[in-house]
Amino acid sequence: MRRSEITVGELIDLLSARDPGTPVRLAMNPFVPMEHGLEQVVQATDVTGRKVVYLAEGRDADAQLGHLPPEVAILLVWQGPVRAPTRRPRRTAGGQ
């Protein structure tokens, strides 16, 4: 069973609600979340004969921008919110 895929029309609808001057980035790899700059959009035919649009990062070494901000990984449900561990009372020099 194939996962559902977003269509060009759905992507246009989702993007049309955003500021047109905002950069578009790709969030990749839920296990090591990274962000990539988007440079190209191309159309081709996949192995089943369907037309497919590909969003591609650039070839430059700095096309991978770094780690995905944690708040984005949380919004994508790639990781849960992280809470600081509870603090234990400190021991005194006398061992108490």
Rank of each mutant, 00 (worst) to 15 (best):
G66E: 10
K51W: 09
H67T: 03
Q79M: 13
T22L: 15
L26K: 08
E57K: 07
R90V: 13
E35N: 08
H67V: 04
R3S: 08
D19Y: 07
G94Q: 04
I74M: 07
P20R: 11
F31T: 11
R50M: 06
L38Q: 04
A44L: 12
L55S: 05
R2T: 10
V42I: 13
P30K: 15
A73G: 12
R3Y: 08
M34V: 10
D60I: 01
V53W: 06
R25W: 10
P30H: 13
V47Q: 03
L55G: 07
V77P: 00
G66W: 11
T22P: 02
A61L: 09
P30W: 04
P23N: 08
Q79L: 03
R18Q: 12
L55H: 06
I6N: 04
D13N: 13
P69V: 02
W78K: 01
F31H: 13
L11Y: 07
R91V: 13
T22G: 04
P70W: 14
G49Y: 11
D60C: 02
L68R: 05
V72I: 15
H36I: 00
L65G: 04
V82P: 02
G66M: 11
P89M: 14
L11F: 15
Q40H: 14
M28T: 08
I74K: 08
G80N: 13
R50Y: 08
A44C: 06
E5D: 07
Q43G: 09
E39P: 01
Q40I: 09
L55N: 05
V42L: 14
R87M: 06
G66K: 10
L11R: 09
M1P: 09
V41R: 13
A27E: 00
Q79F: 00
H67Q: 11
L26Q: 10
R3G: 08
G49H: 11
T86F: 10
R18H: 03
